[in-house]
């Protein structure tokens, strides 16, 4: 692996569903890169295409979905055109997925230890039973499970939500993948446990060097762990860059609005929180021009300029840093 090539590179990715007149494109021109040891956050409202983007990377789109455009390169290999068997051998071995609801993702009728060993047997058939047990135990320990021996013998429902998520992470990590895809891994958890899981992800990156793509609707968790952030809206990337840049001085009005909708802690609370009025557009009929324009305060403030309704302000491959906006915000520090 050459040093300057990113581990994962996604360009101009588009996903379609449906046929004929009912075609829709919930992911439409998404591009981003993930370097070795990097944590990249993908943020957006539900329906913006962030989870589908993640599933497209793994070749796990729900039925009827297909990648119709763009490229996915992982470790110098093209994944978009890859054979399903190649993808299968990568999944769990080099790329692992951490689900949002670990309780549902773990098999309810198998002990945690058995599930860990099963995945080891698939990817490392040469290990002895003893070695497999040891590796499974290590994985649980690494996921900071208190009393890993007990967890090994437990059924998922016997564990708390946080412990289930740690087990799911152990399952994802035991084969030491190079890339971890985490789909809202903390949404179903309590705030205090959320913080622990986020910290765990950072620690694991530091120890194992695993790169992480972290999908969330909660922009405030991005600040906790990510190096870079990709903001998605209506199937497209509207802003991306370093976490500090994007979160402290957002340039896209949508990013700014997302940040403004987080209730501040401390001082006298405002009477009203900032919100994005209206609803996101329908993926079966994306509007032309800038897709955020109908909900954009800046569009109204600037007297509804024509550019916004006529041309898409982003880059062709979706990779460009900064904001996909004709009139980006300047120097707004939050």
């Amino acid at each position: 692996m050459t040093g300057d090539q990113p581990l994962l590179s996604v360009r101009d990715l588009a996903v379609e569903f449906g046929r004929g007149t009912r075609v829709s494109r919930p992911v439409d021109g998404v591009g981003f890169e993930v370097g070795e040891r990097e944590i990249v956050g993908i943020v957006g409202e539900s329906g913006c295409g962030k989870s589908l983007t993640l599933l497209a990377l793994l070749g796990l789109l729900p039925s009827g979905g297909r990648v119709v455009n763009g490229s996915i390169t992982f470790g110098g290999r093209d994944l978009r055109g890859a054979d399903p068997s190649v993808l299968r051998s990568l999944r769990g071995r080099q790329v692992a997925l951490i689900p949002s609801d670990a309780g549902a993702a773990l098999n309810p009728v198998a002990r945690v230890g058995k599930q860990l060993r099963l995945s080891l047997r698939t990817h490392h058939p040469d290990l002895t039973a003893q070695q497999r047990r040891g590796r499974a135990l290590d994985a649980l320990r690494r996921a900071r499970l208190a009393r890993p021996e007990q967890a090994l013998a437990a059924y998922p429902h016997e564990l708390s939500g946080g412990m289930q998520q740690r087990s799911a992470i152990a399952l994802g990590l035991q084969n030491e993948p190079r890339l971890l895809l985490a789909d809202e891994p903390t949404t179903a958890l309590d705030v205090s446990i959320q913080a622990e899981i986020l910290r765990l992800l950072v620690q694991l990156r530091d120890e194992l060097g695993t790169a992480i793509v972290f999908v969330t609707h909660d922009i405030s968790t991005v600040r906790e762990i990510c190096d870079r952030v990709v903001v998605m809206y209506a199937g497209q990337v509207v802003e991306q860059g370093g976490v500090e840049d994007v979160l402290t001085s957002p340039r896209h009005p949508y990013t700014a609005a997302l940040l403004g909708s987080i209730p501040p802690l401390g001082g006298v609370p405002p009477e009203q929180l900032e919100t994005v009025p209206g609803m996101p557009p329908d993926p079966a009929a994306w509007p032309g021009g800038c897709r955020f324009q109908a909900r954009c305060r800046r569009f109204t403030e600037l007297g509804e300029p024509d550019e916004c309704t006529s041309t898409w302000p982003g880059s062709a491959d979706g990779l460009a840093l900064g904001a996909a906006c004709h009139f980006p915000l300047e120097g707004v520090r939050r």
Binding site: G18, S24, S100
Partner: peptide, 14 residues
């Protein structure tokens, strides 16, 4: 993942 399912459903039609 329910979001994904919802998208798939609306897109696919019944």
């Amino acid at each position: 993942m329910s979001a994904v399912a919802a998208v798939a459903a609306t897109v696919d039609g019944p």
